[in-house]
């Protein structure tokens, strides 16, 4: 689901990766899975690595997320850190209660960018 309203289309190297889509010229939308948890961590890591391998800014769409845990948030934190180190922009859309609750419990609200309300559309 593209939250920005930009048109989706496939992009070389992204095609076939679940939850990853390119919007417009530079924005890549990453649709997070329902379970950002240890049990699904390998698949989530693969999606994140695919997105990290591009040079685009990323929009993380958490609309489908119903469960999260430390393993999932740790992966997301590593992903966001990677993008920030490359000077790329990352923004969240549709961050629901599961993600926020666990992020708050772990003290990671700021590190994950949940405190920047401007980029958080709920």
């Amino acid at each position: 689901m593209a939250a920005s309203g930009a048109q989706q289309h496939n992009d070389t190297g992204i095609n076939g990766t679940p939850g990853v889509a390119v919007c417009g010229d530079s924005l890549l939308v990453l649709q997070l899975p329902a379970h950002c948890t240890l049990s699904q961590a390998a698949a989530l890591r693969a999606s994140l690595l695919t997105a990290a391998a591009t040079t685009r800014d990323v929009e993380l769409d958490a609309n489908a997320v119903v469960a999260a845990d430390t393993a999932g948030l740790q992966l997301l934190l590593a992903f966001i850190t990677h993008l920030q180190q490359q000077g790329r922009c990352v923004q969240w859309v549709y961050v629901g209660t599961p993600l926020q609750t666990v992020a708050k419990q772990l003290g990671l609200l700021q590190q994950l960018g949940f405190m920047a309300r401007d980029s958080l559309r709920e």
Binding site: L38, L49, A52, Q74, A78, T81
Partner: peptide, 16 residues
């Protein structure tokens, strides 16, 4: 926290 490529998702690299 290691770089994403080196991160083992089954290991918690954080402390509090």
């Amino acid at each position: 926290l290691p770089a994403l490529a080196q991160l083992n998702p089954g290991v918690c690299h954080l402390s509090w």
